[in-house]
Simulated assay, not measured.
Amino acid sequence: MKRRLNVSLVIVLAIPVVLASCLLYSGREKSNREHAAFSTAAMIITDSKGKQVTVPSPPQRIAGLGGAYGLETLLAFGLKSEIVAMADYAKMREDFKLFVPDVPDVGRSSRPNIEQILSVNPDMVLAYALYSYPEMEQVLAAHNIALVQMDFFVPDKYEREVRTLGKILQRENRAEELIAFEKEHLLYIADRVNTLKPAEKVRVYLESYQTYQAESPRDPAHDPVLECGGINIFADASVKNPLVSAEAVVTRNPDVIIKNITSQYCPSGYGVTDPAALAALRAEIMNRPGWQQINAVKNGRVYIISTDTRSIHPSIYNSYLAKWFYPEMFPDMKPADNYRAWLRQFMGMDLQGVYVYPDS
């Protein structure tokens, strides 16, 4: 009888402990569920197409289709394992291979392969606002995959896009750091060139990737010339990238010639150690028929620059242009040091490769 009482007493005393343990476990489980729900909660954002998009925050599997711009932005935010696809051009960038060597490409930014995108099971696709994707948008919506469209290379939209992406990724501090870097260096340039009178400004021939293909105000590539205090000699062009004649350039007589390149057109960028290809391209430009009478050629002010320097950090590209346009106004500015600082802060890497010729 006494033994039964002892057993009963043990059971009675144990009940509160078991209940407490159950409640504690239940509380932890609820807390874990709430934390998981918070960390992957959905939010509604407005992208650069003006669309309201419901996105997971933060997304766990992102297909970055915005060329090099979208992918470099994701990398600058510190993402690696979350990136599950990229555009074909980004796949060719040697520096990106340091971070996402095995991530597949899913076609061109303008025409991605929808089946390949679905095969990597993304929960968000980050694509250009520059293009429209009616078919892909419909398919992604049917699979509950968010399509967010941003460019990251249009100055007027840069801050808003970076801040919006920072909110989606729950990395607002990094967004503000990216914006602050750009503001600091762009304002440094603007404060000086804004004092120039029209007659003091250099006249610039900005050539795109193709020979004799100029840049006009219809192309964002035109903007840095203005931001750095220059005058685009083909600012009156009615098309985005007009093909001009050698004679037209001679007639307009630029003070500076800037040739934009990518690694597709001329060996350049990360990992390249020999500037011979850029030097040869510069020599070809300076020896075009009749161009020896152009001021830029006579004074040796012909420069080759990889647009990798622009990408999502236009302050770097602009630093080179401003230095070339007005070396006397920027005697202490070293564009390569600015680029090195950006890479170290946001990518955790050093500046390696050939991006400009001749180096300033």
Rank of each mutant, 00 (worst) to 15 (best):
Y209C: 00
G166F: 03
R163T: 07
Y303V: 01
I285D: 01
D308S: 14
S81E: 13
E227A: 15
Y25M: 10
N194P: 01
S109K: 06
G27F: 14
G300A: 03
D223Y: 15
R344S: 11
L206V: 05
R218F: 07
N287G: 08
P327A: 09
S315K: 00
M86F: 07
F77P: 01
V354G: 04
Q345I: 02
I114M: 11
E182S: 15
V55M: 06
F153R: 07
L24G: 12
L23Q: 12
G50I: 03
E94N: 12
N318R: 12
V55D: 00
F99S: 04
R61C: 08
Q170R: 15
R310S: 05
P101G: 05
E215I: 15
G300V: 07
K51I: 09
G290Y: 06
T164G: 06
H143S: 05
N6K: 15
R111M: 09
T164V: 11
Q149V: 00
R282D: 05
V302T: 14
A180V: 06
V272K: 04
A336Y: 15
L9H: 09
K197V: 12
I83P: 00
W324P: 04
G27D: 09
W324Q: 06
E161G: 01
G78S: 01
E72P: 00
N6D: 10
R288E: 08
W342Q: 05
V103N: 02
R282W: 01
G166H: 03
D274C: 06
L281Y: 13
V297N: 02
I261M: 07
D255Q: 12
Y158F: 14
N299G: 03
S132M: 10
M124Y: 02
W324F: 14
I145L: 05
N318M: 13
V272H: 03
